[in-house]
Design a protein around this nucleic acid. Structure first.
Length: 475
RNA sequence: GGCGCCGUACCCAAGUGGCUAAGGGAGAGGUCUGCAAAACCUUUAUGCAGCGGUUCGAAUCCGCUCGGCGCCUCCA
């Protein structure tokens, strides 16, 4: 069994072989080297952006779950036209401006349960590596200069276009035209280095003062951090062309070795059937949803529940459905914690657990099919609920199941293990429950119901079972 | 105009040549309950946009039609 991922470069689902040499077990492989295109920090990221970061997270979590080690980098683009424009508009330094949105970004990642990755390089801290690439390209005659800016010359690089199959395209003049303000020889050429005046944001380099083109930073960071061919490069589908195509041209042009083994691209989040984007204005920020009372974990659940290579249309109704599904998982945990029976373990349970993991791995190994993995998980959940209903489960079994949930949540990252919130006044709640029991015993159901309603208004839900009343917090 | 993807139940969504088309949400009936809630059981697509074709056999392959989306321009 091995992990298979769709590779945009070959248009095929291919086995992941970290380091390029097959081993007998995941532990024997070198760490999986992953580079993910990160945000340009010119404002808060919207949930469409976060769909890709959630899938980056799912990928690395699943690799670790399967026993691989990972070495993962995600860049922060902290210099480009938008960040420069934004900071000058506010009259603050570029650094101050980008620091603000970088912090917002990391806060949101944390809120969504996205694990920190091993490296978060910033473009402005990787200028040296960019200079090295440009110098190498220049030595090979792939660079030309025009009005202080340096461009990559695609006509001198025949291998261009393999990722996006752009070579078969015709750039239709009139329909689409170049909006770049810089002069270029060929419409497809792209800027490696943009010349800057003495008062503009810039760095002094052997080829003059200027700032990086958009694509060069990723090539530079990959080289700086990993040194050689990496296993996986990820990003949104909109980056296939031209961004990733240009990265390949720069890196392979400069270093004469394969840049990336496996290209993985996440599909877009839509809203009302159209791509969610800042420029269209049809986006939700994470805080737009949390302020309305939607939990971050339901956002996480929803965004990752559909396969990554399929567009997902975001709706509030979808978020509600995700919340209900999560409620089902929460309830299992409440029920497990409530089990007090000693005694021998259930004979069926170990096989159920084994079945869950083998099915789950089979599903998710197959191009990260988390939808199927979720179905496997819910089948297991259903089975355990059946055991609980039949009173066929002991405390030891319950702990075993809790361990399973914790293990599987190292992949999901959205299960709520229900630590009692500090504001919950447990003695008071228990007192209220006791008073309600007395009322029930006296058949004063009006009073019993009013106690239940009072607790409900404080966010405490009561459930009567044959072993007594238990409570849980609304989540 | 070029390139590519998608259309599966009331909603979301797996499945891409062959057992009775996963799973979640919602609804209905039942068990339990003073009533709820939760859970469990039963139930909701002879059908996979439409029409042709290939095949012993198709949601799955091919062609056409209709509908939707993305990329080709900053973008996740």
């Amino acid at each position: 069994m091995s992990i298979k991922l769709y590779n945009t470069l070959t248009c095929r689902t291919e086995e992941l072989i970290p380091g390029g040499e097959r081993m007998d077990s995941p532990e024997q492989y070198p760490p999986v080297t992953i580079y993910s295109c990160g945000p340009t920090v010119y404002g808060p990221a919207h949930i469409g952006n976060f769909r890709t970061y959630i899938f980056n997270d799912l990928l690395r979590r699943y690799l670790k779950f399967r026993g691989y080690r990972v070495n993962h980098a995600m860049n922060i683009t902290d210099v480009d036209d938008k960040t420069i424009a934004g900071s000058s508009k506010e009259g603050i330094s570029l650094r101050e401006y980008t620091d603000r949105y970088t912090a917002t970004f990391f806060d949101d990642l944390k809120t969504l349960g996205i694990e920190p990755v091993e490296h978060n390089p910033r473009a402005t801290e990787s200028i040296d590596a960019m200079i090295d690439i440009i110098a190498r390209l220049n030595k090979k005659g792939l660079v030309y200069e025009k009005e202080g800016s340096l461009y990559f010359s695609i006509s001198k690089y025949p291998r261009y276009g393999r990722l996006s199959r752009v070579d078969s395209r015709e750039i239709k003049s009139g329909l689409r035209y170049d909006t770049d303000e810089y002069e270029k020889d060929d419409i497809r050429d792209f800027a490696l280095w943009k010349g800057a005046g003495p008062d503009e944001v810039g760095w002094d380099t052997p080829f003059g003062r200027g700032r990086p083109g958009w694509h060069i930073e990723c090539s530079a960071m990959v080289r700086k951090i990993f040194g050689t061919t990496i296993d996986i490069h990820t990003g949104g589908v909109d980056l296939i062309f031209p961004h990733h195509e240009n990265e390949i041209a720069q890196s392979e042009g400069a270093y004469d070795e394969p840049f990336v083994r496996h290209w993985v691209h996440w599909e877009h989040l839509l809203v009302d059937g159209a791509k969610m984007s800042k420029s269209k204005g049809n986006f939700y920020l994470l805080r737009d949803l949390t302020e309305k009372g939607h939990s971050p974990r339901s956002v996480r659940y929803l965004l990752m529940s559909a396969h990554y290579r399929k567009q997902l249309n975001f709706t509030i109704e979808g978020l509600r459905q995700a919340e209900s599904a999560l409620g089902r998982i929460d309830n299992l945990i409440v029920r497990l914690k409530d089990i007090r029976r000693d005694g021998p373990g259930n004979a069926e349970l170990p096989a159920m657990i084994e079945d869950l993991f083998s099915r789950f791995c089979e599903s998710v190994d197959d191009d990260l099919n988390i939808s199927r993995g979720l179905a496997d998980f819910f089948d297991f959940l259903h089975g355990v609920n059946g055991l609980i209903d039949g009173d066929a489960i002991s405390m030891a079994d319950a702990n075993l199941v809790m361990d399973v949930l914790k293990r599987i949540d190292t992949v999901f990252g959205f299960i709520f293990f229900g630590e009692a919130a500090p504001e919950a006044d447990v003695p008071w709640i228990e007192d209220m429950i006791r008073r309600r029991q007395e009322a029930k015993k006296a058949r004063d159901f009006a009073r019993a119901d009013s106690i239940r309603e009072e607790l409900s208004s404080k966010g405490i839900i009561l459930e009567d079972t044959k072993d007594g009343t238990r409570w849980k917090q609304k989540t």
